[in-house]
């Protein structure tokens, strides 16, 4: 088991390196990209973009130097046009992004999971119909449209909450609601499917036949089993929330990584784009690692298989 987890952690490193290589490579080979405008400005004939990111050497030397600087010195390249301390910016902005994403994930789970369970248990009753309809509507409203509505109502008309920046208190409320709308619908869909599938299983009938109370059958057995598919899709949900957070950051001017990235794209700052992309790759891989571990904890069958395989034993499937 421990062996498996260690293996899994070691596997993170090549994935991160590969993603950075991909972005780095794209930056290197794409001719005629708008990065060239920067080249013209600096007036250097030889790959000025990469010179800024990691000076001198061939492609792989630059790539390795970049990775080395990033992981061991936490440096993302030397400036650019008037760009101050990228490392500090990256740190500060990830703080906001993670705060926004974490709160949204929490709110989505708190509302979405119970709603999904009710929807599955009361299948095709009025509760189910209402909740499913709400989920469809929530997933159909683009996040920025919802943000427009929320900002108009709570910030402009009622004046209860700020809709711009993070200087005032309560400034994360509207962004969190915006991102959660999508997260809630995602959770409802996943949880409803998982729980209703579990409730159809034969062992649920067998447990009822053994005289277990309905509350125990649904509350302990059905939910426990539904946890396996739910945790398997947690990574996808978290990724979606992170992506949705980028839009909310831009709309509500939260100084997170998404806002930073979009600004860098606007102002053509490849150093920052690369820094944002690389750090996002690291975060995504970590998210997936965490959700994989949660799935592992949720599924005893997988746990057994994993530990027997890690020991070098045969796969015992069943």
């Amino acid at each position: 088991m421990t062996l498996y987890i260690i293996k899994r952690i070691l596997l993170i490193i090549p994935v991160v390196l590969a993603v950075i290589l991909l972005v780095f490579g794209l930056l290197y080979i794409t001719p005629g990209s708008h990065m060239d405008r920067l080249a013209v400005k600096t007036g250097d004939s030889f790959d000025p973009v990469l010179d800024v990111i990691a000076p001198s050497g061939g492609f792989f030397a630059r790539y390795l130097r970049y990775c080395y600087n990033m992981f061991f010195k936490f440096e993302f390249g030397s400036g650019g046009r008037g760009v101050a301390d990228i490392s500090a910016q990256i740190l500060m902005r990830w703080g906001w992004t993670l705060k926004l994403a974490g709160l949204s994930l929490l709110l989505s789970a708190l509302i979405g999971i119970p709603a999904g369970i009710i929807s599955a248990v009361k299948s095709s009753g009025w509760q189910d119909r209402t909740i499913s309809a709400a989920a469809t509507v929530l997933s159909s409203i683009p996040s920025y449209c919802l943000a427009v509505g929320l900002a108009l109502l709570f910030a402009l008309k009622l004046g209860w909450l700020p809709s711009y920046g993070v200087t005032e208190s309560g400034s994360l409320v509207l962004p969190v609601i915006t991102v959660s709308a999508m997260g809630i619908s995602q959770f409802i869909r996943v949880v409803r499917a998982a729980v209703s599938e579990t409730l159809e299983k034969e062992y649920i009938t067998a447990l009822r036949a053994a005289g277990l109370k309905e509350r125990l059958v649904v509350g302990a057995h059905a939910l426990r089993n539904a946890l396996v598919p739910i945790s398997a899709s947690l990574g996808e949900t978290a990724t979606k929330i992170l992506g949705g957070g980028f839009v909310a950051e831009k709309f509500f001017a939260i100084p997170g990584i998404g806002f930073y990235l979009i600004k860098a794209v606007d102002q053509v700052q490849p150093v920052i784009i690369l820094a944002c992309a690389s750090s996002t790759a690291v975060v995504l891989v970590l998210i997936n690692f965490c959700t994989d571990m949660i799935s592992l904890a949720a599924d005893p069958q997988m746990r057994k298989r994993v530990s027997s395989r890690a020991k070098g034993g045969r796969r015992d499937g069943r």
């Binding site: 794209l26 005629g32 708008h34 992506g243 839009v247 794209v265």
Partner: peptide, 21 residues
């Protein structure tokens, strides 16, 4: 699997700014 673990928005933004504006 790797592709689907990247938020599509990020993928699209990066593609747009790397492949040409």
């Amino acid at each position: 699997e790797v592709l689907s673990s990247v938020p599509s928005l990020l993928l699209v933004i990066l593609a747009e700014c790397l492949m040409g504006w």
